[in-house]
């Protein structure tokens, strides 16, 4: 069952397309890694999937019941956030503001959902702590908990391990793997070869000339895939 299906997309701005004739899809429960050099249009694709840019041509179909506002988005962290005075709970619960009705305060149900989301990510003991006192890896977990507030089905992660040390990065990958096993579809934009190699089911590789879309095994047998492996310092052993 396809959760998202993109057909013959032309993406970019009025002065020209950055991506031409792109077709790919994500199954329910998929783990799709989106890789490619800088400037290949990854962030344009992310903005398009989020509904912030409309495609120049082509269309995106979401499974019935899903809309682009129900994507649990984990953006790249900004410098402003790192020392932002906010409790962990305030950050997480803000994830459901788009569905929030009524003028004031969050409801009890919303608060308990935020707590559940923190429990999923093993951060419940830090709910009352200040976001700025957390380590980089913990901050990403909190932002992932917030992303889960906006969705039950799909998370879109934009370079989630940027700036994390190797241990924190592999912890975060383990959590994402667990979420995926529990049935959440994962789309991840990444420079890092490890999630593509270890966890991904399908790969979308964007490059200036062409693109590759297919399952992981096919990808690493393809020219683009071999090049990525080599650039990341992985050599084939004979």
């Amino acid at each position: 069952m396809k959760l998202i299906e993109c057909k013959n997309l032309y993406l970019g701005y009025e002065d020209g397309a950055i991506i031409e004739n792109l077709s790919f899809s994500a199954e329910v429960g998929d783990y799709l890694c989106i890789v490619g050099e800088n400037g290949s249009g990854k962030s344009t694709l992310v903005k398009t999937l989020l509904g912030l840019i409309t495609p120049l041509k082509g269309n995106i179909e979401y499974l019935k019941g899903l809309n682009s506002k129900e994507i649990g988005y984990l953006p790249q962290q900004s410098a402003i956030q790192r020392d932002f005075p906010s409790s962990v709970m305030e950050v997480v619960i803000s994830g459901c503001l788009n569905r929030h009705k009524g003028l004031f305060g969050y409801t009890k149900a919303e608060k308990s959902r935020a707590m559940e989301s923190l429990i999923k990510l093993g951060m419940e003991s830090r709910a009352k702590d200040s976001y700025q006192d957390l380590s980089g890896g913990q901050q990403q977990r909190v932002l992932l908990a917030r992303a889960l507030m906006a969705t039950e089905k799909l998370v879109l992660l934009d370079e989630p391990v940027t700036g994390l040390d190797p241990k924190a990065a592999s912890d975060l990958y383990a959590i994402i793997r667990k979420l995926n096993e529990e049935g959440i579809t994962v789309l991840m934009v990444t420079h890092d070869i490890h999630p593509a190699l270890n966890d991904a089911k399908t790969i979308l590789h964007l490059s200036q000339e062409s693109y590759f879309f297919g399952n992981k095994e096919e990808y690493f047998a393809s020219e683009l895939g071999k090049r990525f492996l080599k650039e990341a310092g992985h050599h084939e052993h004979h």
Partner: peptide, 19 residues
């Protein structure tokens, strides 16, 4: 209050969720 909070903390996320 809540809208101002979230647009201050994370404009990218807010936009993506339709704020």
């Amino acid at each position: 209050y809540h809208q101002i909070y979230i647009t201050t903390f994370d404009p990218a996320f807010s936009k993506a969720t339709g704020i």
